[in-house]
Amino acid sequence: MKRILGGTFILLLISCNTISKKDKELLKKENNLLQRELELTKQEQNSDSKEITLSKQKEVEKTNLEAAYKKEPVKKPSSYTFDNFHISENRVGIFSKGMTISDVYNTIPKEQIKKKTGYGEFADDTYDDYEIYDSNGKIILILTPKQNGNTNSKINRISILDKRFKTTKKIGLNSTFGDLQKHYVTNNISPDMEHIVLDVEHINAWFSIKKTELQDGWWNEKGIDRSKIPKTAKFDGITVWWN
């Protein structure tokens, strides 16, 4: 009986040991499968994370580029700032006797030069007038060459339109006839359509005064009566002539 029980106990032990080994193998296989699934899940998550990161980086770069583009100032053509307003016999500011219109284009930006057609007393009397503007867009001078349609033609006439231009004696627009008499000889005075013109040969310049500023009787059989020109009469135009 003891032998039988002993044998049975041994069989049970063997059976238990056998089941335990199988369970361990199954558990091991399941663990391996789970581990693989975990690794695959991590790989997928990492891949998704990389895609999301790249996508975010692209969005950030796009936003930065758009912001930089919006902040970038619009490029404007460079302008010339005038700081010389001196009138002399052979110079008016930066423009000198003998310069051509082509020289003018080579001196200041073309954006500050506008070509217009000027008219004289008669219908067929036309000129190429080149308006000169400062850096603020204000017209300051009109340059007129000797020949129309030729940028190699020399400057013949300069019409001064800005009060900043003055002679060495500080005579400019809005200066008076009395101011001019103190410093320059003005023997030659002639009438124009709406003005009288005082020729100052010393600086090759004409100074114009409106006829409405003159006293009655300013014109007689001898011509213009200088005594009828008030000393307070102001100049509304200055023109420099270069032959």
Rank of each mutant, 00 (worst) to 15 (best):
M1L: 12
I4L: 14
G6T: 10
T8K: 15
F9E: 10
I10M: 11
L11G: 13
N17W: 06
S20C: 10
D23A: 13
D23P: 04
E25P: 02
L27S: 08
L27T: 06
K29L: 09
K29M: 12
E30K: 05
N31C: 05
L34Q: 08
Q35L: 15
R36G: 15
E37F: 01
L40K: 10
T41H: 10
K42Q: 02
K42I: 01
D48V: 08
K50L: 14
K50E: 11
T53M: 13
K56H: 12
K58P: 00
Y69C: 03
K70M: 02
K70C: 00
E72G: 01
K75Q: 09
K76C: 14
P77L: 11
S79Q: 01
S79T: 03
Y80G: 02
S88I: 00
E89H: 07
R91D: 10
V92L: 08
I94R: 04
I94F: 07
F95H: 11
T100Y: 02
T100I: 05
T100P: 06
D103P: 10
T107L: 14
E111Y: 06
Q112R: 01
I113D: 14
K114T: 13
T117F: 05
G118L: 08
E121G: 00
F122G: 10
F122T: 13
A123Y: 11
A123S: 09
A123G: 03
D128C: 02
D129N: 12
G137Y: 06
I142H: 04
T144Y: 10
P145W: 06
K146D: 12
Q147R: 15
N148M: 12
S153W: 01
N156P: 03
R157T: 15
I158T: 08
I158G: 09
S159E: 15
L161D: 04
L161S: 06
L161A: 03
D162F: 09
D162W: 04
K163G: 07
T168R: 09
K169D: 15
K170G: 02
K170L: 07
S175E: 12
S175I: 15
T176M: 12
D179L: 00
L180V: 05
Q181N: 07
K182R: 12
H183C: 02
H183N: 07
Y184M: 06
Y184T: 11
Y184G: 11
N187Q: 12
I189L: 05
I189C: 02
P191F: 04
H195R: 06
I196Y: 14
V197I: 15
D199P: 00
H202Y: 05
A205T: 15
S208V: 01
I209P: 15
K211C: 04
E213K: 15
E213S: 14
D216P: 00
D216E: 01
G217Y: 03
G217M: 04
N220Q: 00
I224S: 05
D225G: 08
S227P: 01
K228G: 03
I229F: 07
I229P: 03
K234G: 03
F235N: 05
D236Y: 08
V240A: 13
W241D: 05
N243H: 13
N243C: 01
